[in-house]
Design a protein around this nucleic acid. Structure first.
Lengths: 239, 239
DNA sequence: TCGTCACTGATTGTCGACAATAATTGCCTT
DNA sequence: AAGGCAATTATTGTCGACAATCAGTGACGA
């Protein structure tokens, strides 16, 4: 509810609306990775013709959410573990940089807002009964806002419009290690403190370490799945 | 000629072809920054209907080459100096990382190929009569290949498909300082040596410094233009 | 003379239909 | 029965036409 993309323009285009709709469907898992996007079906589902739909698909392809092969159609992107790890490798550099820049620019109101976000985040971590979804979203929201606060539009664009959607696709693919949410929140608070003090160097270091930790957890989790008998190859593993 | 995008698939889609055509037109300056993309005109120019054309425009928007506002149309992106500097800031982090990764992965044949590229590059620097175009392209080609050689597909994608086209738009916007090409080539060779020795740490440092230098030159050049009486504000400055 | 408003022209957004290509089914051969 | 081949079906790619919206023009009134 905080960010409803269809409301940002008073008279949004159909292509725009269906873009956000499909994007949400992919992120939520309603359209499974690897599944085919059949234009007639989607057009009927969203009540449009194929024209705007095809425009939306082209944009999804540019954002990396679908892959399309000529004369064959579009499939929902199915990231390999390697590619997912690549994304985290990239995030380490990008978000580290964003932190350094943000530390020098954050205003007091923005800092207060970030603090409030982390407090909500903490509440979601406390009651652990089934609110994992909101915890994950809150986690990403923190990163999202720092990217925006960096003041570098290009970095913010790459992170927020290209990478975050991909990561949200894989929220549940890898199980968290026990107590990881608590540790992650603590790391966020440390980053927060560094940002509030304007210590860009420290904020960058902490953010890089934070992301590296998550990356290593994913790698471990993937290795375990690979050793598991049920794991076929590289895709589709968690439960 | 080295990379002809229309040949990569045997039966390319019209939308694909017109995408590359418009992209080339924008990068070459045939479509000036800020100019409007009128669909009827472009469709006539490229001999297609508006359907594939609109799909191409949506992809160009995702790549940052055009900006489109609903019910009004698409305009060629007109980067502010700030945004251009932001791109270089991002490149410093991204390409530094790409260098570090590439140093650990480059094979001997790839190293040889890179060397040959730099030798051609050196020849273009030698005869300075009007071959500036090829020098610039060679420069970018070096960066392009390192990004690919990093082995991180995501980084390569961001650099090669999003950022490089934008930078090629602004090749001539800012005049080079005297002897800069010679110095830049020398920096490339140093990076090359570090890569060949597998010294990722050094390669990253050298690449970051290299890009930072270019960025500072742009900033200086922009400041001079700002002091100039002809410069209105932030856009359209060079001659 | 200037500002406002309706009108005209052009441009964008959307749709349904047709052609070209790929995927699938069933059949035939070995 | 298994594999390959051909006809059919479904899906993608492309087009031209219509509706909705925007931009520019000119007239009208203060």
């Amino acid at each position: 509810m905080a960010t409803n993309p269809t409301l940002q323009t008073p008279n949004p285009t159909l292509a725009e609306q269906v873009l956000h709709a499909i994007q949400a469907a992919i992120v939520n898992g309603d359209l499974a990775p690897g599944s085919k996007l059949k234009e007639p079906d989607l057009a009927r589902a969203y009540g449009t013709s194929r024209g705007p739909l095809r425009e939306a698909i082209r944009q999804l392809e540019a954002r990396g959410l679908v892959q399309l092969t000529p004369h064959s159609g579009a499939r929902v992107t199915n990231l390999s573990v390697t590619q997912l790890l690549d994304i985290y490798e990239l995030r380490e550099a990008l978000e580290g940089m964003a932190c350094r820049l943000a530390a020098a620019r954050l205003t007091d109101p923005e800092i207060g807002e970030l603090r409030r976000l982390l407090e909500q985040h903490g509440a979601a971590v406390e009651d652990q009964n089934g609110r994992e979804y909101f915890r994950q979203e809150g986690d990403l929201d923190f990163h999202y806002r720092i990217a925006r606060a960096s003041g570098n539009e290009v970095i913010a664009r790459v992170l927020c419009e290209d990478l975050y959607h991909l990561m949200r696709m894989y929220r549940y693919k890898f199980s968290l290690v026990p107590d990881r949410p608590v540790a992650a929140l603590k790391e966020h608070w440390r980053i927060m403190d560094a940002l509030a003090e304007g210590d860009g160097e420290l904020a960058e270091l902490l953010m890089r370490r934070h992301i590296r930790t998550v990356r290593q957890n994913i790698q471990r989790s993937a290795d375990e799945l690979a050793g598991d008998s049920t794991a076929s190859n590289n895709h589709e593993g968690a439960a």
